[in-house]
Design a protein around this nucleic acid. Sequence first.
DNA 1: ATGTCTGTTTAACCAAATTTAACAAGGCTT
DNA 2: AAGCCTTGTTAAATTTGGTTAAACAGACAT
Lengths: 229, 229
Amino acid sequence: MGHTKILITEDDPNLGQILSEYLTLKGFETILCPDGDQGAKRFARDKFDLCILDLMMPKKDGFTLAKEIRVKDQDTPIIFLTAKSMQEDIINGFKVGGDDYITKPFSMEELLLRIQAVLKRSHPPEEEFPTEFTLGNLKYYYTENRLEKPSGEIKLTTKENELLKIFFQNLNQTLDRSIALKKIWKDDSYFNARSMDVYIAKLRKHLKEEPNIKILTIHGEGFRMVEVQ
Amino acid sequence: MGHTKILITEDDPNLGQILSEYLTLKGFETILCPDGDQGAKRFARDKFDLCILDLMMPKKDGFTLAKEIRVKDQDTPIIFLTAKSMQEDIINGFKVGGDDYITKPFSMEELLLRIQAVLKRSHPPEEEFPTEFTLGNLKYYYTENRLEKPSGEIKLTTKENELLKIFFQNLNQTLDRSIALKKIWKDDSYFNARSMDVYIAKLRKHLKEEPNIKILTIHGEGFRMVEVQ
DNA sequence: ATGTCTGTTTAACCAAATTTAACAAGGCTT
DNA sequence: AAGCCTTGTTAAATTTGGTTAAACAGACAT
């Protein structure tokens, strides 16, 4: 239930396997990638609570990967894992935005404790501010899960509410499927995508009395909510 | 922002001096204590943003001091500093609630980076929360387990009271199930979760005469108490 | 000890929200 | 137009939460 998702990039298949199994046993969800490129791809697709990056990997080393991650995301904690123990590297690790640095060999217990120490301090993703919206003759109160229409008010379920908020925040802009999925469903998989389609239908049903507010489908891209005259 | 106050306990006067000067140079305010007892006294008197504790000190060792600190304060980050590098000690350091562990010899630069990494994640200094709240025409006195409604007052049981306090402290924000469970029930297990659901129902019953104060369910996440217009 | 009172947990059953499945419809490519 | 992929729609299955009451446990009094 805690559902803490960890990205592990480690090219040594043995160590990777052990790490992944141990952390899964401890209640984390882990995704193991064998090189930096795959790690980058995976990070772009899913939402993680923590990254454990090996430094020396084929395709793309841990520092480079960390830098790429930090361009898009300043918050997700990063722990480096490495055989090197050069002072230079440790310092470099922190400079690219890492949170901790563990040198091999290490005990699983120490790793677990360092993970917990880092997570303990990790901020929950910052929430943006506006929570009330007006559009046409709709009033929408995000914190109350409530949509007011001329015909009366509707109570929204959690998923309807999260989705509608994103639309109101991105009026007249195309909302990318995968972005919405990562924000609300935490990762974009086939089934979550279908689930989202179901919720798009629910929102359209709620909005159908307002003929000038539409959720358009951008085929292969996502959706866009617009107000038409 | 500038003012970050660090407690350093270090019995080696040379190292202590160097640490203190270096960190002062880097813009921190530092208080240096030569042993654990003085560190404890100082911590009780002042408010710090970070503690750097040597492990082997006269009067009171670093672990003992950390434990004493954690009894009163769960938030201030603690970094251990030590000549030992026994696996045992590292693990122990995290178990008593430490945030990082640096073995001597280390470079000042590494220490600085680790300090910054820990502070980056540290929660803004915990404000003392009020114990009396007003919301709509409710008055709630936490220390007295008492909720005043227009219709009269209610005595709350311990669990009702703890739960209601968390809601008042997090008005209009989603309160995560697992966070509430860990705070009140100490761990989130299936049965505790169900117990919490029972208490949510009790609170809703207490609040039902106030139709504009609601505890909303955020499915799969937690609950949110809101005042609606 | 025995009983009673009070707060809490466990259990059982029900209701709501979400996900999965299945099939239909639309759009793009050739 | 045919085939393939994406999205729409509906309903069943699954998961999560709501509600009530019974079981349990500790405090206190007899």
